[in-house]
C-alpha cells in the first residue's frame, strides 16, 4: 500500500508541477462551458443531455493528452528502471498511476458542476438524469484512461502513445454505427455492446443499467491487467 500511495503522490505532484493538469482542466471547462451555453440557451430547455454528449466527445480528445506521458515519459526519462528497482509491485505502480489520472478526471468533472447552478436557479431539470449522466461520464472516462494507460506502456514516444489512443477511443465511440450494416443478429448485439456511445446514451437519459456499468469497468480492468502483464513481461 505504501508503494501505491508513493506512486500516486508522485504522479499528482507531476501533474500539478507541470502545465498538464492546468491545461486539461481549463480547456475542458472552456469547452464544456461553451457547449452548455450553446445547448441550453439555443434550445431553451433545462437539460444536460446534449452537453453530456459533447463532454464525452471532448473527453475522447483530451484523454490521450492526459495519458500519453504516464509510462512513455518514464521510459524516455529512464526512470522506469528506478520504479522497478524500488520495492514496489508492478500492480502498485500501474494502479497508482491510473488512480492519479482518474483523480484529474474527477477534478475536471466536478469543475463542470458550476454549470448546474444557473440551471437549478432558473430551470427545473431532472436531478436523476443529471446524476446518471455524471456517473456515465466518470465511467466512460475511467475506461478511456485505462486504454490510454495501456498504449502509453507500449511505447517510449509520448506522441505515438497519444496518436494510437485517440483513434482507438474514437473507434470505441463510433463502432455502434456499424450495427445497422450487420445482417447477423449476434454481430449486431456484439457491436452494440462494445460501443462506448450506446451505453453512454442510455446513462444520460437517466437509465442506470448494470450492463453499462459492468461494461465500462470491464474495459478498465482488462486494460489495467494487460498493462501490468506487459510491464512484467518487458523485463
Amino acid at each position: 500500500m505504501n508503494g501505491l500511495l508513493a506512486i500516486y503522490g508522485k504522479e499528482m505532484a507531476t501533474y500539478f508541477r507541470s502545465p498538464i493538469a492546468y491545461f486539461l482542466i481549463s480547456s475542458f471547462l472552456l469547452g464544456t462551458g461553451y457547449f452548455f451555453i450553446y445547448n441550453v440557451f439555443s434550445s431553451g430547455t433545462a437539460t444536460m443531455d446534449l452537453t453530456f454528449r459533447d463532454m464525452a466527445f471532448l473527453l475522447m480528445i483530451l484523454v490521450p493528452v492526459l495519458t500519453m506521458r504516464i509510462f512513455s515519459g518514464e521510459y524516455s526519462g529512464r526512470t522506469m528502471e528506478l520504479l522497478i528497482a524500488l520495492p514496489i509491485n508492478t500492480w502498485q505502480i500501474v494502479l497508482g498511476k491510473y488512480l492519479a489520472a482518474v483523480t484529474i478526471l474527477v477534478i475536471m468533472t466536478v469543475a463542470t458542476f458550476v454549470n448546474l447552478i444557473p440551471m437549478f436557479l432558473y430551470g427545473n431539470p431532472h436531478l436523476v438524469n443529471i446524476i446518471c449522466g455524471y456517473i456515465g461520464f466518470i465511467l466512460l472516462g475511467m475506461a478511456s484512461i485505462s486504454i490510454g494507460l495501456f498504449f502509453s506502456a507500449l511505447t517510449q514516444n509520448q506522441i505515438v502513445a497519444a496518436l494510437i489512443t485517440l483513434p482507438t477511443l474514437l473507434g470505441f465511440w463510433w463502432v455502434g454505427h456499424l450495427q445497422n450494416m450487420q445482417s447477423n443478429s449476434f454481430m449486431q448485439d456484439f457491436l452494440g455492446y462494445i460501443a462506448f456511445s450506446l451505453h453512454y446514451s442510455e446513462l444520460i437519459r437517466g437509465l442506470l443499467r448494470s450492463e453499462a456499468v459492468i461494461y465500462y469497468l470491464l474495459v478498465a480492468a482488462t486494460s489495467i491487467i494487460l498493462t501490468i502483464s506487459y510491464i512484467k513481461w518487458r523485463r
Binding site: R17, A85, L86, P87
Partner: peptide
C-alpha cells in the same frame, strides 16, 4: 535490501530535490 544507481541517474526533472527524496523514502516504506 538494495540501493541502485543506474548508469544515467533516474531523476524526475519536474520535482524538487526534497520532493524526489521524499518519494523514494515513501516507496522504500
Amino acid at each position: 535490501r538494495l540501493g541502485y544507481l543506474p548508469e544515467h541517474p533516474p531523476l524526475y526533472d519536474i520535482l524538487k530535490v526534497s520532493g524526489f527524496l521524499n518519494f523514494i523514502a515513501n516507496a522504500k516504506g
